[in-house]
Amino acid sequence: MEKINPLEIRIGKLKLQNPVLLASGTCGYGSEIADFTDVKKLGGVVTKTITLKPRTGNPVPRIVETPSGMLNSIGLENKGLEDFAAVKSRELSKLGTEVIASIAGDNIKEFSAMAERLSLLTCVSGIEVNLSCPNVLHGMASRTYKLIAQDARATSDVVKAVRKCTKKTLIVKLSPNVTDIKEIAKAAENAGADAVSAINTLFGLSVNIKTGKPNLARGAGGLSGPAVKPVALYHIKEIYSCVKIPIIGMGGIMSFEDVIEFMMCGAACVQIGTCNFIHPGESAEIVRNLEEFVKGRKIKNISSLIGSVKI
């Protein structure tokens, strides 16, 4: 008889061995963090966001600590799609874990081109569409909205276009910088997304009072870390109330208890982000603790926790 894995979770076509993934921008392309954590033990990794053309990113300082969190303004620095497809993808196939490619584009054409190209790579098992990076300006952002993920219609247009170009599992990354995240999540679901991930970082600012200048060279940045966890849980609960597709939760997860909390609020699986910067080995440890947790509680499958919070 086949051994039943109580941590197994399905996201679209993907069968993950457990619900713990590494978040985009916090693990390089997987191999960078492999010296510190056993990526084979994880549910998967989400790559640093890839753009069609190379991006040099924002000036330094790009990182500043804030109470129980940090602001970043990396600005999607990456070597572009071709480098990913030609060079990085070779390392990815050796990782031994599911790889979800994160992509961002300036317009629908770019998103489509990237999705099409990535669909040809066997080492990529899913695509996360990053509509919510607070540190870049998209060509699609209108005067009303800074981020595509703030605009239900733009979100729908991008997701529909990407859906046409790929059969791979399609995840849409949402922003907490919205008036009502439910509207955007529904738009993504109706446009054909297999899952949504939330939350990307929150707009934030920190100032050096001696110089009167922001601590980040670019000014504002994206807030992450334990400080944002309650915000993330709130948004996940909101999304859970209105969509049927699975939610990938993230925002300040530092322990397996945090993972359970996210699942109770509606997350089917989670991504570990800022934690990787501080305890790069923690993700595999979290998986180990989850294994013990389900064993101790005699839980048949961890999915039974999803949305179980009693409100």
Binding site: G57, V60, R62, I63, N72, E77
Partner: peptide, 21 residues
């Protein structure tokens, strides 16, 4: 430089060199 992670995963501390970033 201000370091986020110290291990090359946050990309917070770039420096331009003759051999690229």
């Amino acid at each position: 430089e201000y370091l986020g992670c110290g291990i090359g995963i946050c990309v917070g501390c770039p420096v331009e060199t003759k051999a690229g970033r």
